[in-house]
Design a binder for these strands. Structure first.
Lengths: 210, 210
DNA sequence: GTAAAAATTGACCGGTTGGTAAAGATTACA
DNA sequence: TGTAATCTTTACCAACCGGTCAATTTTTAC
């Protein structure tokens, strides 16, 4: 076969694995900052330190790169929600969830923005992934409903509770430019994060305890 | 003068005013759904029911259209925050603010998404507008600080409180696709809005009362 | 060492996009 | 009604963009 389209059936060489990672890292940077449409293959190739045809030797299309990133991200993105333990103490489980989500916004802002970009544009490329997300949420909502029934947490709408946790935590990644513009040089990065964590704890704990 | 570039010095004819509005409405639709980079002049012209060169007779560039929209939006966007009354009752002022912001997310989702798009991409075209925003926030934060000092509301970080209100309300416009995917056909539009309003009231009132 | 496989590159292509030129159609107004 | 200003359209351009091709260089396997 004359054209062994790199990422075909099975991983092959050392170089392939390395370069594919380099490309994905570069693409994450570019997609997060410019969106899918705004990103060009040339930009990604530049960021990855290779030529455009060379990049296209490893991934067949721009969309293929995006697809891999989205799949990876959504998976790790939902880990904190999966980690909520039915047998744990409700309020401390929720507190941990918020803290984990906030840590992800701090540590993986590009992943958050890439995802936000996709949703904002109407999620044209991730319909089925959204279905997986719905299934997981539905499952966890049942847990919250049980806790509410048992009087272990306040009687609120669990769907909207999840939305509000997503919104408040991801805000610090997705709207970082705005947050920085408003806070100015008031606080350094880490202090800012701790302020946010403390505030969200206060808000949600007293908002959700029975 | 042979080329009276429509929107030049002063508004002129009836047709100019009408067409400019049609274009802005069309551009809002397209920018909100595709972002600045993703939107094409052809798309906007189509949506506005005119040819591309005709559109460019009224606005010199794509960026000029975007600029006008952003300016208009930011202005109305901040109205609810401006409306917070120092002499009012703190918790009811905040409740009204949340309700107004949620109504805007419901009634002007395209405006919200256009703005979100801009921030997500690093706000390249609206640096000075961000400064205005900071000034207004700083001003209102002083009001909250006073209320806290007077023991009329809980001692939380007012900046992060504002962020959390922005995040939770705008979430329903910006991440609408996700919200709909998760909620499925569970509720119609208006019921959904009322559920969100009730939940946010519960969350913020008990989270913020002294 | 050598030859085949894998990796890289420059040159290129067709379609799209932001924007222009210039001529024709319409409107406002004397 | 005539005409000047305004409005609209057709044809077009140069830059960009996603992707291909063929040829060259590098790596791997023996």
């Amino acid at each position: 076969m004359t054209l062994p389209r790199a990422a075909q059936t099975k991983r092959r060489t050392r170089i392939q694995e390395e370069k594919e990672e380099v490309i994905l890292e570069a693409a994450l940077e570019v997609f997060a900052n410019h969106g899918f449409r705004g990103a060009t293959i040339d930009q990604i190739a530049d960021q990855a330190g290779m030529s455009k045809p060379n990049l296209l030797y490893y991934f067949p299309t721009k969309e293929a790169i995006h697809r891999v990133l989205i799949d990876r991200i959504l998976d790790t993105w939902l880990d904190p929600l999966r980690a909520i333990d039915e047998t744990g103490e409700p309020l401390s489980e929720i507190k941990s969830y918020i803290r984990r989500k906030l840590e992800m916004a701090r540590d993986f802002p590009r992943e958050s923005r890439l995802f936000a970009n996709e949703i904002l544009q109407g999620a044209p490329r991730i319909q089925e992934e959204l279905q997986d997300l719905k299934n997981l949420v539905d499952e966890k909502v049942k847990v919250f409903a049980k806790w509410i029934e048992q009087g272990k947490m306040r009687n609120i709408d669990p769907y909207h509770m999840i939305f509000s946790i997503w919104a408040t935590t991801q805000h610090y990644a997705d709207f970082d430019v705005q947050v920085q513009a408003v806070l100015g040089s008031r606080k350094s990065g880490e202090g800012r994060f701790e302020d946010a964590a403390r505030y969200l704890d206060q808000l949600f704990v007293s908002g959700l305890k029975p």
